[in-house]
Amino acid sequence: MSNPKVSIMITTRNRLSDLKRTCDVLTRLNPPPHEVLVTADGCTDGTVEYLKANHPDFRLTINQQGRGSVASRAAMMQQATGDLVLALDDDSYPEQLNCLDTLAQIFAKHPKLAIATFPQRTDEYPETLTQKDFGPSKPVRSFANSGACLRVSTYRSLPGFEPMFFHMYEEPDYAIQCIANDWQVYYFPEITIRHHYSPIRRNEVRNHHLHARNEFWSVIMRCPNPYCIPLALYRILSQARYALSRGPQWLIQEPKWWWQALIAFPQALKRRQALSWNGYRAWLKHP
């Protein structure tokens, strides 16, 4: 892939002040991106008006009713006309203004690379804000859509992000697909992401429930028989153990996500596209 075109995608919901800061950085990237795709997912805070007035060149998708970050990203991955897509959150952006050249070089050197993920300086973990050494490049089993680059041709050859997840866990689910099909998922420290990690629309218990539910559905969709059921049960117990570590108030709320998972179990089963055990196990063995 010579001189790949790099698109950028962002999904946002009612975090206009964060989005403005990110858009300002994107306009200063050199070279500029091939295109910027933004999905306003049920926004009611002036986001749409701001983008139309200040960034009319961005490809804007407006979801009047929120479809969730996963479905929004899945749609943009099909709409993108670039060879690569840099995925960001509305509160994250690359610190290196020449990062798109670096991305092109990384993917040119690694023809089997499906996903490149990068270290983040994030307010969620304040020690990273001054960290100087983020370690060497290495294979990984997941990534964060707040700062990762995806090869478009690979994405479109696989099931991709699962829209029924709504929010959370689309990254490891997609990484499973890539690794099981002999594609690489790698961490590269050449680019760093500044992630302000906005507290708006974040709820730890809710996110835990979404993560646990979607992890369970992912096992149902991807893990082959006869390993599917025992692994699904293990995931339930593992999430309960985590909830217990956060305190009794977390643990007594676990049935909420169990019920959500059960209600949509037939839909998850219908969308099942099981991978080979060798491929699935390769992902399990990844660091």
Rank of each mutant, 00 (worst) to 15 (best):
R235V: 14
A87D: 11
A71N: 06
Q65F: 14
R235E: 15
D41C: 03
V70L: 10
I176A: 10
D41A: 02
W277A: 02
R213L: 10
Q65A: 12
I263G: 05
H211I: 07
L37E: 02
W259M: 07
R28P: 04
I179M: 11
N54M: 13
D101Q: 09
V152H: 12
F134G: 01
F161H: 08
G279Y: 04
I236V: 09
K112R: 14
L284T: 08
F188E: 00
A175M: 01
K270Y: 11
E95Y: 06
N54Q: 14
I8K: 05
L262Q: 12
V152E: 10
I62F: 13
P4M: 10
R272V: 12
R272N: 03
E171Q: 09
N207G: 13
R246C: 14
P230I: 05
Q131R: 02
T81K: 15
Q239A: 13
L29C: 01
Y125L: 02
Q64R: 03
E49Q: 11
H196A: 02
T61F: 15
P136F: 00
G46I: 05
L237K: 01
P136D: 10
A75L: 11
R206F: 13
K138M: 10
L19R: 09
G247R: 07
D133V: 01
S7D: 09
Q78G: 12
W277V: 01
T12S: 05
S245G: 10
P111F: 04
G42Q: 09
K285N: 02
N214E: 05
S92L: 04
F166M: 03
L97D: 11
M168N: 11
R201D: 00
R206K: 15
S142E: 08
S245Y: 04
L244S: 14
L113W: 15
L269A: 14
Q120N: 04
G279K: 12
D133C: 03
Q105L: 08
N3I: 11
M168W: 12
D182S: 12
L251G: 09
K285R: 15
Q64N: 10
S218Q: 04
Q79S: 04
N203F: 13
R194F: 07
N278M: 03
A268D: 13
A116M: 12
F188C: 00
L97W: 07
Y169F: 08
L100M: 09
